[in-house]
Each structure stands twice: as structure tokens, then as C-alpha cells.
Write a protein that binds this DNA or RNA. Structure first.
Lengths: 348, 348
DNA sequence: CTGAAAGCGCTTACAG
DNA sequence: CTGAAAGCGCTTACAG
């Protein structure tokens, strides 16, 4: 049996009101009473029930977070900075890992509502009609992080995926590459699927580069699919001299595939990823990547949500964060490629 | 204003008791009343308050989890399977990322108590006296996952770290290696620090291998420290022909360092890691690793905790899971090393 | 089968 | 400065 405020009051010889007052640090409690109460609290190891407190205060200090895949370093890093900000502001995180299970998401959204969370963070954009309706119905603030679902009413903290993909592609073009392969995401995803693909496509056509059907493929953002899609691309003959994958994981998969085909990165094929995950510095060659400000994204998500919870009315629209191209070893200009390839040939 | 049970009762023309009954799926409610109530619930979008329910039932369905570092793939993978099992059993996770901050841990433990979580999972073994006392004091079940603090009373779900490290070292010895370097963990950690080091040391001495002072170093399990420690080892001259790092992250760091010194893995130096993280299959060469059953570890942790919560008395002591050596490309026998090295010389 | 009432463990006007 | 009482939104004996 947990000790409760009544026990403390009785033992200290005061009313529960007084105990409550010292608990909440109110003034208007004589010092000697305060001391006595604190001593009893210490003795009994009393910890006030947040459950009871939440009930009367109508404030739970709980935030619900829906993560698509906890084992992904991208999401868990965002989650980590969300947790950081939450903790600093006295909030606790209820975390749900849905792993592609849309039913689980809906179920959890309901749990969040029943738990009376004060805000909800979703890092997943494949929401269905049921979920959309639910979010519109509840009066709890909801914010999307790193993704943007197809609904103007929802607010997202994201980068400009179109522009980022455009710049990444343009960078490869400026290096002199003509045949630039693309490993995209799920076209049902607005941000990471459609927008990044459009950015690639437009950058290519704006510079008069031909889109080669065999060089355009789509994966699921994971390492294995990067490998698989690259394999398909290579088996199609006339291989590209550079490849842009819309996640670092896929880019690493692609690099591994290239290596397994006895080709070199970047000497034979340059590779560029997207996200700016830990992997970029960890693989060899290190991976050039269009980086999202992952930590900032988590921080800003939480800060905006806290404002929403606080009742502030924010300017309409999404919060757009800055992306940044981080150039590392995996990308190389087309001319260098040629030279090196020739030199290598001389040595053989 | 959230709609409450009273609103539903009024609109349905029944008592709150009846509404409560249909909410909880009790029998003894006439079908027509049940229908009417359900319709009103639907109409009003009523979701019962778990807060109020928890207060009266004295059951929160909450589990508190303390993770040392959410951005680590090892911990986030365990967390992922913990979440899975929790969800299936109707439990929700309150997640706290302490990132080496022991004060934050204590603070969160108190929050967990105030939230009346039914159980606590800790994946961190550097607990101090204050935390130890706290855990002994509260009557909430606490379980450690993947780590074991220095207190016989606490129950852990772990592998036999000593034996695993012994076997990993023995494997390298059997490959013909004599000079085997070691990159250990924090010696304040019983399992991953002390036990793995003892396993290495004893495997070496049991086979009559000399321990070379310069070949024994300690890091913090992360990639960078693997790199740094390897660098120190290489700069000491007389380099080892194999290195055993007690985390995959450090092993990858070591591999990168070796490569940056224009040496090859495994041809010049064989490398073996520990954990069995996603990295092992992702780096090139793929990394041989002494694997922990990461997913099983999360699952078992949750299952044991649920039994503890259910009041079952379990056999004393820790739950020991099986480790497994996964041989991949980064390890190679000493003799092959020599041969290949010679062949390479011929070609130059 | 149904409902009035007590109670879960707190906080917060209100009165003194 | 201090306390009695009402109330937060539910569930659960208890009575009918």
C-alpha cells in the first residue's frame, strides 16, 4: 500500500491541505509546520500521486509520440532530442512504435486521448481517413515531425524536401555527371517520396539532362532496399556515373552493392545520400549527404508543440528548417572519375 | 472541455453506473440500453479518462523505461521489442533518455514513482547509492535489461558476458592469432566492462598467450572511441594481428582507423565486435561479432517484468540468454593473412 | 438488470 | 497562516 497524503497529514498532526501546500511550495505555511511536514514526507518516503493530481488539475504533463520505427537511427535521434526538450519542460513521453502497422497507430491515438496527453507528435505520414478524422475531432494539439501528410490543416516541422533534392541533384550535375541514377522513397509519402523525386526530376530537366527510365528506382528507405534497387540499376546495363538515394540507409546499401559488383565509390560511381544520419561518417568512403537538421528538428517540434499546448496561436503553415549539403568522400566530379579510372587502368 | 461519463449518462437517459458497465463490457446490461449508450458515446466522441480510472482501480498500465542513449541502435532495438511486448499486453511506455546524466535518472525514477508506473526497466548499470536505495525502498518491480549493476538483489536479463568474451577471444586464438588486441569498455560496468575484459584475459592466459600492455585499451563503446583507441594501439608499434572490441560500434571505429592507416581488414588485422547490431552487415567488410539476442532480450525483459507485476515469484537470480558468434568477413585466420599479405607484396 | 452512494488521492476556493 | 469541504471523472460494492 502506497502512503498517501492523509497518512502524512495524520503523522505530522496537520491537515491534508497544509501538506498539499508544502508539497506545492506555496507560501503562507509557517516554517515550523513546513519543516515538520517535510520530515514526515522524508520518513515515510511519500511521493504524491500524479494520477490524482492530474485528475484535479486537468493537466497530465504527458506527450504522446508515434514513431514509425524505433530501430531507425533517424527517428530515434529525433526522439532523443524531443525527449530532451520534454524533460526540461517537465513533460513525460508516452512512446509508441507502430512499425508500419496503421491499426496500431489508430489504437494508440485512442490510448493517447484516454490518457489525456496534452499533445501528440507523429513521425509518420501515411495516415488514413480514420486517423485524419480522429485528429480533426480531438482538441489535443497534434504536430508532425519530419513528415507532412496530405492535409493542409496539419502542422509539420520539416525541411523543404523538394528544394533539398533539387540541390543535391544539381550538385551532382555541377560535378559533371550526366547519367545520374535516383533511388527514391515511397511515392505515397508526400515529403520523402514525391517531393524529393520532383526535386531530382526538375533539377535534371532544368539542366537538360535526360531521365533514364532504368536509372530511376524506388525503395523503402532501408539499407537492403538501397542494395536491391542499385542491383537492378546495375543489371540494366549503361550504368550511371552517380546515384542519389533519398536516405542515407539506402545510399549505404547502394554503396555496398556497387562494391560487391567490383566497382568503386566514388571512382566508378559517385553516391550521395539524404538525412545526415550517423552512418555518413561511419562508412568508408564517408557518405556525402543532404542533411536534415535532425536534432534541431526534434527540438523545434517539441518547442512548437509546447506553444500550441500553451494556447499560443502560431503563424499558419509548416515550420521549415534549413537543409545542408555535407560533402564527403563518396562524391567526386565526373572528370576526376575518368582520370582515376584511366590511371587505374595503367597500373593493371 | 472533454466530454465525461456524466454527459453520456444524461444524454442516454441512464445512470453513470450503466455507462460504466457498457464501457467495461460487463454483462447484465439490457441490449437496448447498451445500444443506446454506445450510440451516444459515438456521437459525443467520448473517451473515458484513464486518469480517473487509474485512480480508482489503482492500476495505471504504465511501465517506466530508462534508456542510457536513444541514438544507440543497440538500446533503441531493445526498446523497440520492449514496446512491442508492452503494447500487446496493454501496457504503455514512459520513456526516459538519460544520456549519461545520473541526476536525470534519479529525477526520472521519482517521476516514475509519482506516475505510479507498475514496473521499471533500466538499461544502465552505473547506478549510485541514492538510486540503489531508492530501488530497494519502492515496492514497484524493477528489472535491468542487458546490464547488471553491482547488487545481488536486482534482477537482470543478460547474456554471460564473461563466457561470450572468452569464446570470442578463443575463436581468434584458434584462427592462429597470437597478438590479439582488446578494446574494452568502462571498467565501472560489471557486465560490459569487467566481465568482458576478464573473458578476454583468461582466454588469452589459458592458451598461454601473452597480454601485451599496449594492446589493451578501453573506450566508451562508441564509434569514435574505437577509432581513437585503435589509433593509440597502432602508434605503439608492434601491431596486433587481430583486435577484439567489446561493441560493434567500437569495432567499426577500429576498422575505419585501420583503413586510414592504409592497412586492410582482415588481411592485415582481423576485427571482431560485440553485440550483433545492424552495423555488422552494413559495413564492408562485414563484421564478425559476438551477438547478443537483442530482440529476445527486450521481449524477455518485458515478459519477466509482467510476471513480477503479476505477483509471480520467480526463481532467484538473473535470466541468462544465449550469445552466438556470427562469423563474417572481418575475421580471418592468421595463416591466410600471411599468405595474402605475401601475394599482395608480389603484385606491387 | 439498474442506480444511488461512497471512495480513489489529490487540489482549491472558501471561511476563519 | 490553517483547515473543512467540495470536486476532479471514474468504478464498485450494495441495495433493490
Amino acid at each position: 500500500m502506497q502512503v498517501k497524503i492523509k497518512d502524512v497529514a495524520k503523522m505530522a498532526g496537520v491537515s491534508v491541505t497544509t501538506v498539499s501546500r508544502v508539497l506545492n511550495g506555496e507560501k503562507y505555511v509557517k516554517d515550523d509546520l513546513k519543516e515538520k511536514v517535510n520530515k514526515v514526507i522524508e520518513e515515510l518516503g511519500y511521493a504524491p500521486s500524479q494520477i490524482a493530481r492530474s485528475l484535479v488539475r486537468k493537466k497530465t504533463n504527458l506527450i504522446g509520440v508515434i514513431v514509425p520505427d524505433l530501430t531507425s537511427s533517424f527517428y530515434s535521434t529525433i526522439l532523443s532530442s524531443i525527449e530532451d526538450r520534454a524533460s526540461v519542460n517537465g513533460y513525460n513521453l508516452l512512446v509508441c512504435n507502430i512499425s508500419e502497422d496503421i491499426d496500431k497507430e489508430y489504437k494508440y491515438l485512442n490510448v493517447f486521448q484516454e490518457m489525456r496527453v496534452e499533445g501528440i507528435i507523429i513521425m509518420h505520414e501515411k495516415i488514413n481517413e480514420q486517423i485524419r478524422a480522429f485528429i480533426h475531432k480531438i482538441n489535443t494539439p497534434v504536430i508532425f515531425s519530419s513528415v507532412k501528410p496530405m492535409d493542409q490543416k496539419f502542422v509539420s516541422v520539416i525541411i523543404d524536401d523538394y528544394e533539398a533534392a533539387y540541390e543535391a541533384t544539381r550538385y551532382l550535375i555541377e560535378l559533371g555527371h550526366e547519367a545520374i541514377g535516383f533511388i527514391g522513397g515511397d511515392m505515397r509519402d508526400i515529403t520523402s517520396g514525391q517531393n524529393r523525386y520532383s526535386g531530382y526530376r526538375n533539377a535534371m530537366s532544368d539542366r537538360g539532362k535526360k531521365l533514364v527510365f532504368e536509372h530511376i528506382r524506388f525503395g523503402d528507405y532501408k539499407v537492403q532496399s538501397g542494395y536491391d534497387q542499385m542491383k537492378e540499376m546495375l543489371s540494366a546495363g549503361n550504368r550511371p556515373s552517380a546515384v542519389f538515394a533519398v536516405s542515407d540507409d539506402m545510399a549505404v546499401g547502394a554503396m555496398n552493392c556497387i562494391r560487391d559488383h567490383h566497382l568503386r565509390v566514388p571512382e566508378d560511381i559517385a553516391v550521395i545520400g539524404f538525412d545526415g544520419s550517423q552512418l555518413t561518417e561511419l562508412v568508408r568512403p564517408t557518405l556525402t549527404s543532404m542533411e536534415q537538421p535532425i536534432h534541431e528538428m526534434g527540438r523545434v517540434t517539441m518547442d512548437v508543440l509546447l506553444k500550441l499546448i500553451g494556447g499560443e496561436t502560431l503563424p499558419d503553415g509548416d515550420v521549415i528548417l534549413k537543409h545542408r549539403l555535407m560533402i564527403r568522400e563518396s562524391s567526386q566530379s565526373r572528370s576526376e572519375q575518368t582520370n582515376e579510372a584511366e590511371e587505374t587502368n595503367k597500373n593493371t
